[in-house]
Amino acid sequence: MSEALGPYLFILLAGTLATDIWRWLGVLVGARLREDSDLLLWVKAVATALVAAVIGNLIFAPSGALAEVPLAIRLGAAACGYLAFWLARKNVLIGVLAAEAALIAAASIFAGT
């Protein structure tokens, strides 16, 4: 790792290969899927649930600066955003802005910063 190229090889191996291998496998599997098939619907449902699990973890157990914000505020702000998204007839931008406003407001009031 002390060599200049070490970290880049590390990223290529543990980052690029580790992610692209799933994409390549996906291309091979997807080539056999028909657009209107039940199998494709199941594959899409699994993909959606996996992404949703990532979302849940990013809210519930985040890393970095977001971890400093208390869990209750993160959950409350996410709920605010989702509610606003629904009330605004599925407007993504309004949902995101509402969640962010709730997070920043609650964190600055309760954390006293």
Binding site: L58, P62, F85, G95
Partner: peptide, 20 residues
């Protein structure tokens, strides 16, 4: 706090965009 708010963008955006 701003850095945390930026991290918060990803999950909220994914959640609402996938819903939509």
């Amino acid at each position: 706090l701003l850095a945390g708010a930026l991290f918060f963008l990803t999950p909220i955006y994914f959640l609402t965009a996938l819903s939509a």
